[in-house]
Design a protein around this nucleic acid. Structure first.
Length: 277
DNA sequence: AAGATATCCAACCGCGATAAT
DNA sequence: CATTATCGCGGTTGGATATCT
């Protein structure tokens, strides 16, 4: 026996939300808080499935949404993050306060793609359209080192039934190709040499406080002169010849923040401070 | 002015990971 | 341990609106 269904799929409203439905949802969340989307619709008196409520709240009703046009800075940041993360819209959105993944995704598909194409840049690879692709066989070992992003759990006991999650993190030791753009990182940002070791995103789950645990995040950043930027809450300034600068790298062992770099929920690396020659 | 086409974006769909039973 | 539901994500769709012919 599994769980019991949260709601009947029939008799549910679909399509555009009415003003009244919005008001009910906002009012309910204001007084009871976010979460438990399963039971929310019934409790709030909405004929919607929880999934629909969650989407409506996150993408449209949340009070901290910025809305309005994207600024030039936001454009640049999205492009930089996309070149590093690919279509990981939720991760990109985590670095743009007040913007949702859906909003950024739409914006990318309708504006930025076109903008890049008009500049002769392939939006998928962030390389020049005319530039020939590098055949796999020509990759050097050094390319491989840059390409491989190693995700390693700090708890190797939990090897059973562990799979890669959607963020590309794996919960057992193995080397994975996280996103092909990283292969080209050396070419895009010749000064940027990232070697990342990232722990899985353990979080304080509401239903299982026992999973609260010490987080270990080891993220090592190098500048072209070999200066390693890593330590607990390290401030890493570049020195003259280095052309990558970090405003702040916060590598924390705290369980509250700083658990993963690619989760980008922390101040680990502010991409807005990245400058590429 | 009217129809055709393009653009935008809210909402849906399907899937993987994970939690509950 | 198996089964089934929920959550959260990325991809896609379709209706509303804008622009073009």
């Amino acid at each position: 026996m599994g769980r019991s269904p949260c709601c009947e799929k029939e008799h549910m409203n679909k399509g555009a939300w009415t003003k009244e439905e919005d008001e009910r949802l906002v009012s309910y969340i204001n007084s009871h808080g976010e979460g438990c989307w399963r039971s929310l619709p019934r409790a709030a008196g909405l004929l919607r499935c929880g999934k629909s409520c969650r989407l409506r709240w996150i993408n449209y009703l949340r009070p901290d949404l910025k809305r309005g046009n994207f600024t030039h800075d936001e454009d640049d940041l999205i492009i930089k993050l996309h070149s590093l993360l690919g279509n990981k819209w939720s991760l990109i959105a985590a670095r743009l306060p007040g913007r949702t993944d859906n909003e950024i995704k739409n914006y990318w598909n309708t504006h930025i793609k076109r903008k890049l194409l008009s500049k002769g840049i392939d939006p998928a690879t962030h390389r020049s359209i005319n530039e020939p692709k590098i055949p796999k066989s020509t990759k050097t070992e050094e390319d491989q080192v840059v390409k491989d992003v190693c995700f390693v759990t700090e708890d190797q006991k939990q090897t059973k039934n562990q799979k890669r999650n959607r963020n590309g993190l794996v919960c057992k030791e193995e080397r994975v190709e996280y996103y092909p753009v990283l292969v080209e990182e050396e070419k895009l940002c010749p000064d940027l040499n990232l070697e990342l070791k990232i722990s899985p995103p353990w979080q304080n789950k509401k239903h299982d406080q026992r999973r609260e645990r010490e987080i270990y995040t080891a993220s090592r950043f190098y500048t072209e002169n070999g200066l390693e930027c890593s330590s607990d809450t390290a401030k890493c300034q570049t020195e003259d010849s280095s052309s990558i600068s970090y405003s702040s790298i916060d590598i924390s062992t705290s369980s509250s923040v700083g658990y993963d770099f690619l989760g980008l929920k922390t101040r680990i690396l502010d991409f807005r401070s990245l400058e590429m020659k």
